[in-house]
Design a protein around this nucleic acid. Structure first.
Lengths: 189, 189
DNA sequence: GACACATTGTACCGATCGGTACAATGTGGG
DNA sequence: CCCACATTGTACCGATCGGTACAATGTGTC
């Protein structure tokens, strides 16, 4: 074994940005090659499965980031409200306060959903589940916690769509502020 | 003048479904031709501007439907709450209780946004504005009405994404039920 | 330096892309 | 019937699609 590719993370991040901007169909190998500075030879060396493997790896990479920075705090924080607070901060920074779009959410909408259905369902399912757990631990009734969690994740996705449509980042920050209130967190001044 | 195309509405509805399923990039002329039963000759006869004109017409068509079935009731109902109720029912039926996706929301996410930015912003802008007006007339403070309207439209968009991701229609109907409560409507049994 | 293997650039493939040209075929009004 | 025009099918265009083949070039190990 030679070495672990040192910047596979960075590579995946760049490819992710292309998929985010152009969607699965719109992200051509030419665009990906241009963005990464890699020719087809290199791309197919790293991803023998081609475009589909690239997208799958990107989704897994994003999933891993959320696992570490969003789901883990929800699961592991001794104080559930502190975990929820971390979730919101990580979410805000990940989506760059609304400048960025949720790639997995975008994949969920069109036909590419069929290719990645399992990964997509898993991502959102864990998000809702872990948030619901934290809400239950913070004192909500279980069924109420589930509804609230579903509402919160949907609110984030919807706010991303609306912010992008209106080209107005404030839409997203207003949504996050409402979520703080709704989830029982102190509102930042 | 010969005649007005009798089924242009139906044609647009079919084309819309293709864009909904495959996204702007993924909706090839071959798919559109197959779905409509029209060859390229006919398609370019009706839409000389090609794919972009088709999408623009589809978006305008959807916009018109919402204007008539969603925005107008919000604007014109003597009882604002009745208008909001009509909005929710029309929305539920339009999105087929979550089976359908919002094409304009999907367009807002990827690069096709640049092509249709004006139409997209207008659609969501009017939705929020008219809902906010109705909420204000139903007794909410203006700024509160605006936030609530934004929250509601985002909740619908987010619920569509989540329902599609989870492949679970109940996600959407639960979101609508929560919205009824949130907007001050009686909840259906 | 020699070998193994990782990485890359280039040329090429058939298929499909969006779009155009145009002749053939309806079809309603005079 | 005939004309004007709406509608359609087909053939074709250059460009680009995702993907493959492979030789050339790094690069670390011995």
């Amino acid at each position: 074994m030679r070495r672990i590719a040192p910047d596979r993370d960075q590579l995946l991040a760049i490819v992710a940005e292309v998929f985010r901007e152009h969607g699965y169909e719109g992200a051509s190998l030419a665009l990906i090659g241009e963005a990464t500075g890699l020719g087809k030879g290199s791309l197919y060396h790293f991803f023998p499965g081609g475009k589909e493997e690239m997208a799958r790896a990107v989704v897994a990479h994003i999933d891993g980031w959320f696992e570490e920075n969003v789901f883990a705090p929800l699961r592991d924080s001794a104080d559930p409200l502190a975990g929820i607070e971390q979730m919101l901060e990580a979410t805000d920074s990940y989506f760059r306060s609304g400048r960025r779009v949720c790639l997995i959410g975008a994949f969920a909408l069109d036909e590419s959903r069929d290719l990645f259905a399992g990964q997509i369902r898993d991502y959102f399912g864990r998000w809702v589940t872990h948030l619901a757990d934290a809400l239950a631990r913070s004192g909500h009734r279980p069924d109420e916690a589930n509804e609230l969690a579903e509402e919160a994740v949907a609110a984030i996705q919807g706010a991303l769509t609306l912010a992008r449509a209106a080209n107005d980042l404030d839409v997203f920050s207003r949504a996050l502020r409402r979520l703080r209130v709704r989830l029982g967190l102190p509102v930042k001044t």
